[in-house]
Amino acid sequence: MMTLDKKYRDELLVALRMHEISGERVGEVLAEVEAHVTETGEDPVEAFGRPREYAAQVAEQLDRGTGKRSTMEVVASGAAVAALTMFGSDYLLDGLFADAATIPYTLKDTVALVTLLVLIVSGTMLFFAAFTAKARNQVYAVAAVVTFALCIVSQIVIGSVFDDVTPLYEMPRWAAIALGGVLVLGVIGMLARAIRRGRVVYPKAY
């Protein structure tokens, strides 16, 4: 009796996750492939195609009601996690290690953080597109690398252009700790939800 090659299974699992397909549906797809290979002895590449190609085919057949999040939902979720992480950790660390009772935030601080957030989210989305798009994969991959490189360049440019002396706004140390803690807890909650959604669940029949 032939069993599904572990390498093919692992690559298919990763490819399906890249398409933001629910763990329940991922389990169903893996079970279907494993059952077919076991019953027929056919090579999975011949039967279903390469993992990335088959994952794209599966994703095309799904919508929100059948286990796939919309592109807008994925982007919004990724941006929210990135924003909460960056601002939450920034405020929390500033509050914990500040020497003064009040923490000043300059125009340079704000612009640098927002720019970094936008570039990181954009680069991450391009990175996922490089693994999920049927065409122009190399273009997306190069664009992702360039975007991540811009993260470093942008911080240098912003540091030399924007005012880093005059406070744009100030925050009491206790408020920075409290706000940072709330934002970090929000990230933990969102990640916990994502982990639950992505947990692979095989159909009971298997």
Rank of each mutant, 00 (worst) to 15 (best):
Leu179Arg: 03
Leu116Lys: 03
Val201Met: 11
Leu150Cys: 12
Thr66Gln: 09
Thr110Val: 15
Glu11Val: 03
Val37Ile: 09
Phe127Pro: 11
Cys151Ser: 11
Phe97Lys: 06
Gln138Pro: 04
Ala144Asp: 08
Ile156His: 01
Ala55Gln: 08
Val161Ile: 15
Val145Pro: 00
Phe148Tyr: 15
Leu183Ile: 03
Glu28Leu: 12
Met72Leu: 15
Phe48Glu: 01
Leu185Asp: 07
Gly27Gln: 11
Tyr140Trp: 14
Lys7His: 06
Glu46Cys: 01
Phe131Gly: 14
Arg197Leu: 10
Leu113Phe: 00
Met125Leu: 14
Leu126Gly: 01
Phe162Val: 00
Pro167Ile: 02
Ala194His: 09
Glu34Ile: 05
Leu150His: 03
Glu170Asn: 06
Leu12Ile: 06
Leu168His: 04
Tyr91Gln: 00
Ala79Phe: 14
Ala130Arg: 07
Ala192Pro: 02
Gly189His: 07
Ile177Lys: 10
Leu113Val: 08
Thr40Leu: 10
Ser122Gly: 03
Val184Glu: 08
Ser70Val: 07
Tyr206His: 12
Met86Arg: 08
Val14Asn: 11
Val201Trp: 11
Ala205Leu: 13
Leu92Thr: 02
Ala149Trp: 03
Ala83Leu: 09
Val111Glu: 02
Leu113Lys: 13
Gln57Ser: 14
Asp5Trp: 08
Met171Arg: 13
Ala192Ser: 14
Ser154Val: 06
Lys68Arg: 15
Ser154Arg: 07
Pro44Gly: 00
Val114Arg: 03
Arg197Trp: 12
Gly23Pro: 11
Leu16Asp: 09
Met190Glu: 11
Gly78Thr: 01
Asp94Thr: 06
Phe128Leu: 15
Tyr140Ser: 10
Tyr169Ser: 02
Ala59Ser: 12
Asp163Gln: 05
Pro203Leu: 09
Leu93His: 09
Ala192Ile: 13
Thr3Pro: 00
Ala194Cys: 02
Val74Ser: 01
Tyr140Asp: 03
